[in-house]
Design a protein around this nucleic acid. Structure first.
Lengths: 139, 139
DNA sequence: ATACCTGCAAAGGCTTTGCGGTTCG
DNA sequence: CGAACCGCAAAGCCTTTGCAGGTAT
């Protein structure tokens, strides 16, 4: 699904839930869709500010929360100070550099196997974080 | 390795690094060693307070940081508000209940396979978080 | 028209830091 | 004795919330 289709899906979902479609909301989702860097709220805010100088951090916080509740973005859970967001919602995992902190998407397909049931508990979703040094920091 | 041996190891490591062995530090590590609940700093603090009423939160924060840097405890990375700590440093993973937030240790052994090398990047460690409903919340 | 949303500023958590007094080695 | 540590309080982030004015439907 490309960016335009995803934005349309967002509009659809907003209509369903009687949420209003505002330029700020579109802008937040657009930044996330165009970024592969798993940005923080502050990074999203700074990007949006270029075009909408009066946008507020609170709006960005409120919007990522909505996007998450609609299932359009995911939090990247890791031990950094601030939460990061990812508009790629296909099953994939993350490689995090222990030195510079960069997060790279990892698609493992058949190379990895994680059971969907453990001790009688059903696993709804899995987050795999791999830690190591990225190619730049390795040298 | 039992609790007593682990405490001795801690003392050893402190001597190596010229860190002082204080009752507060022992108490923090002891609480972590005796707990399977992956406590937050505040929870550790409350436990210690029973025996050392004048202990301060700052000391607990400073101590878990030392323990982490010595490789004796690990942060449990998840999307809760506060960081949790785990004195179990053997390779294992976590099942987190989406409703009540309880964290259960998972030992998968051969049931799960995660490659140690990806796209030429070496994986030093892996954190797997599985999300679902615990047996209590399922009902 | 009105329900919802925004920006601002203030408040709320969790965590870190600076300082004077204390303790371990 | 001296370096390292502790408790306290203040300061620092990141995030959430309340409110008055503005916007989408």
């Amino acid at each position: 699904m490309d960016i335009k289709e995803r934005l349309e899906l967002f509009v659809e979902k907003c209509k369903e839930k009687k949420l209003k479609i505002t330029p700020q909301r579109i802008a937040v989702y657009e930044v996330l869709l165009c970024s592969k860097e798993h940005p923080t709220v502050e990074e999203i805010y700074n990007k949006i500010k270029e075009r909408y100088p009066y946008v507020s951090m609170a709006t960005v916080y409120r919007t990522v929360e909505i996007l998450e509740s609609l299932g359009l973005v995911k939090r990247v859970c890791y031990w950094g100070n601030s939460t990061r967001y990812d508009a790629n919602i296909e099953e994939h995992h993350h490689f995090i550099c222990l030195k510079c902190g960069i997060i790279r998407d990892i698609h493992l397909n058949g190379d990895m196997y994680i059971p969907k049931e453990i001790d009688g508990l059903t696993v709804h979703s899995v987050a795999v974080n791999m830690y190591g040094l990225c190619s730049s920091c390795k040298n």
